[in-house]
Amino acid sequence: MSILLIAAMILTVILLSKQKAGSSAGFLTNISYKLKGSLLSHNFWLAGTALFVANTALFGIAFVIVFFLPMGTILGLLLCIPLSIFTWLFISEIWDGNDKDKIKMACVGNSFFLILMIWAIWHYITLKPAYPGDDLFMAWIGLIFSLVLGVGAMAVSMFVILRNR
């Protein structure tokens, strides 16, 4: 499992280093050009909500792949990480407003990860042992893992969205 996590981190670093080339690719430019003048490119609430929905959908896809498909962890890591980065690049390319509103849009859209981390902490705080003497160490490990993944996803998303053009 740790090998898969390291491979996903390496893939993320490679994709982030190539993001300038990916953002100028014809496919992304053609789609974003059609949406440049729309309300989505100027209203940070609407763009942030679209980013929130995209993050929620990508998390749902990753959840289904990892937990309901055999050998889904490998497929989930190889599919959802590049798809997430592509989605964040797409939202970043569509944005045509000022940088202050772009920061607001990124905060609204990435609040999904904050809500997910708050839920994980609340779930851990209200966790009761299944039987007397039950060790909740594995629940603590799961909490730490979910917090690291949430902070990592939020940081990468903010970095990709708020990068300079």
Rank of each mutant, 00 (worst) to 15 (best):
I3V: 14
A54E: 01
N110M: 10
V151I: 15
I81E: 01
T49F: 06
G48H: 05
W119P: 00
S17I: 13
L5N: 09
S38P: 05
F86I: 11
V156W: 10
V156G: 02
I118F: 12
G142R: 11
Q19T: 10
S157V: 10
Q19A: 14
S84N: 13
G150A: 06
T126E: 11
N164G: 03
A7W: 09
K128T: 04
W119Y: 12
N43T: 09
M71L: 12
Y124F: 14
L16W: 07
V66G: 00
L147G: 03
F44Y: 09
I74P: 01
K34S: 10
A130W: 05
S84F: 11
L77G: 09
L162V: 10
W45T: 04
L35H: 03
N30G: 10
A7L: 15
W95S: 02
I125D: 00
L5S: 01
T126R: 04
L75R: 00
L69I: 11
N98Q: 09
W122S: 05
F90V: 13
F67N: 11
I31F: 13
L39C: 05
S32K: 01
Y33G: 08
G133S: 06
N110F: 12
N98R: 06
L162S: 01
L149G: 12
G72C: 03
L11I: 12
K104Y: 13
A21S: 13
L51K: 00
M105H: 06
F90M: 03
V160Y: 06
V156M: 07
F27G: 01
L28K: 02
I103P: 00
I6C: 07
R163S: 08
G150R: 10
F52M: 12
A62P: 00
A139F: 13
V108A: 03
W45I: 13
S41Y: 06
S17R: 13
G97L: 07
W45G: 05
F145I: 10
P129W: 15
I115S: 09
T29I: 15
